[in-house]
Design a protein around this nucleic acid. Structure first.
Length: 279
DNA sequence: CGTTCAACCTGGGCGC
DNA sequence: TGCGCCCAGGTTGAAC
């Protein structure tokens, strides 16, 4: 589930907890009663390459947390659907997939917890990172992209704007939940083909994207009913209370107070919008 | 080019 | 209780 705001909240949490500057004392992969997650290179090699190395910084690459480690290596943690990072011992230990033991500092242990196990962990050399960065598998970050770059990346397409906004090669960070929220804030219908958006709508879209994502980060992300996302201290985020359309089907639109939020399926993903204020 | 489907996984909710 | 089915924030690759 974690999209840009949740991953950025994790990144800031680790940063504030003092993870940069600590040294990796151990990397553990607990035995779980489930199919193990994908780790590249293999667990032994990854551990060997990290032991005794200092963590230089905690960064984010799209929807992945990226630890820059001494030796110009990058430990890339991709939560995908249900992965999350915790500095507090998880209540349900069955889904702990990796444990980082660090020293010194107040935070000694970081847990990667993932119920569905679709998350992945990679260790990239400087060269591997540069290859991926330059290969355009990830477009510019949704918080950094300029309005003209957003326009350039999407405006030629005939795809529905909601589908295009979730294309990580075009712009990275926006997923299913925030795509609906952003388009509602921008008052654009999710099915509107990109090449039919007006200049004004591109302006609104860019502003709404920054605003919604920034607000969600400040709230520590969205924790839905199933609690598959928690902040690094194990507490729920707060942005779900501000959702205007996501999972609000049948409710009156909070913006126009007239429309009733509808749920449709686009590219096999649930999509929510207000038929009155979004066109 | 754009869309659809399946797969990767586990668990929760619902209808019967 | 239990079974079967559908759903879930992400990503990828194949088929049409």
């Amino acid at each position: 589930m974690p999209e840009l705001p949740e991953v950025e909240a994790m990144r800031r949490g680790l940063q504030q907890a003092g993870v940069p500057g600590t040294t990796i004392r151990d990397v553990e992969f607990p035995r779980v009663p489930y199919k193990p997650i994908r780790v590249r290179p293999n667990r032994h090699a990854l551990r060997t390459r990290l032991l005794g190395r200092r963590i230089v910084s905690v960064d984010r690459w799209g929807k992945a947390v990226m630890l820059l480690v001494e030796g110009n290596q990058r430990l890339v943690i991709e939560p995908r659907m249900t992965g999350l990072l915790l500095v507090a011992r998880p209540a349900d230990f069955r889904f702990v997939r990796m444990i980082l033991q660090l020293s010194p500092g107040p935070i000694r242990t970081v847990y990667f917890w993932d119920r569905r196990g679709l998350g992945q962990i990679h260790l990239w050399s400087a060269r591997q990172f540069e290859q991926r960065r330059d290969s355009a598998i990830r477009g510019p970050d949704a918080l950094e992209i300029t309005q003209s770059a957003l326009y350039a990346a999407l405006s030629d397409s005939r795809r529905p704007i909601k589908v295009a906004l979730m294309d990580q090669k075009a712009v990275s960070g926006v997923g299913n939940l925030y795509a609906s929220e952003i388009l509602h804030r921008a008052r654009i219908h999710p099915q509107k083909p990109c090449n039919q958006l007006t200049d004004d709508q591109w302006r609104m879209l860019h502003a709404a994207m920054r605003r919604v994502l920034a607000e969600a980060i400040r709230c520590g992300g969205s924790t839905l009913i199933d609690e598959t996302y928690l902040t690094i201290s194990g507490k729920p985020g707060r942005y779900q209370h501000r959702h205007r359309v996501y999972q609000q089907a049948g409710m009156k639109c909070r913006a126009c107070r007239q429309g009733v939020i509808k749920k449709i399926t686009l590219a096999q993903r649930s999509t929510f919008f207000c038929p009155v204020c979004q066109e």
